[in-house]
Design a protein around this nucleic acid. Structure first.
Lengths: 134, 134
DNA sequence: AATATAGTTTACGTTAACGTAAACGTAAGT
DNA sequence: ACTTACGTTTACGTTAACGTAAACTATATT
């Protein structure tokens, strides 16, 4: 009831299992504090988890997500590191923009497919499902 | 040099291995004609492959992609099938719209991350990578 | 005829991302 | 003291999506 969360708090909130959260820790994606033996998650950990899951929804691997998570932290101070980081960021952006295109196209196609379906219903001449807002 | 393609034509064009293409066939996602023993791909097969790969880039499983591919074909004629199809399409759309949100947010975040990096460069006071158009 | 090039089937190997289960600890409620 | 709820570590199992290799066929080129 404070600023912190238990493992099952997070599991419930993000609809994943505790196993998943521990697995992410094994992979080094999370680093919760400990209170004795128990894991205790600070808001920052929660944010990291949200980023990881967002990455997943976008089709990134956990390693890729890890990289992204790192990008949000302090950029570090090594010049070489920074350069690598920037080019990775730009690569990611290219990929994401490709995804945006894919998405647009696919949404249009689905629109078409649905219209075809509704038309087919029309020929059956019966009560048909409601139209979609978009 | 006609309207058709060999397996390695497609492999080259879409930058996948022939193994991958045969694998998709095993899964029932492709059904090329045969000329003797050899697979021979018509334009329709090529389109299907493109759809599958687009699905992949969007993080769909092959089975999901298969479903999508089916949606583009003839909607069939069975009423029950049509209804199932329409609701699947709508579900997909929900998912894709969620992805669009995720994408937007992540692109903004990457923007921020890059700025941070560039700022860090500023403090190193050296030749820094060029700014990005967007 | 021999080599090269593209194709075929069959089958075992691999990696990522968890699931599932065993065996145990701890703190709260009855 | 017993049960219930929540947590822990360790370890083996599983599924998807191919990779890799073996053993073979067919066509074309040198």
């Amino acid at each position: 009831m404070s600023i912190n969360y238990s493992i099952s708090d997070l599991a419930a909130e993000f609809n994943v299992t505790t196993r998943t959260i521990r697995f992410y820790e094994e992979k080094g994606l999370l680093n919760p504090a400990r209170e004795g033996n128990r894991r205790i998650y600070r808001p920052a950990d929660r944010t990291r988890l949200r980023l990881i899951l967002r990455g997943k929804r976008l089709g990134f691997s956990l390693d890729e997500s890890a990289e992204i998570v790192l990008m949000y932290g302090s950029p570090g101070n090594n010049r070489r590191q920074l350069e690598r980081l920037i080019s990775r960021i730009r690569e990611k952006r290219i990929g994401l923009q490709q995804q945006q295109e894919d998405l647009t196209v696919m949404l249009e196609d689905l629109q078409d497919a649905e219209k075809k379906c509704l038309a087919a219903f029309g020929e059956l001449g019966q009560k048909r499902p409601a139209e979609t807002g978009n």
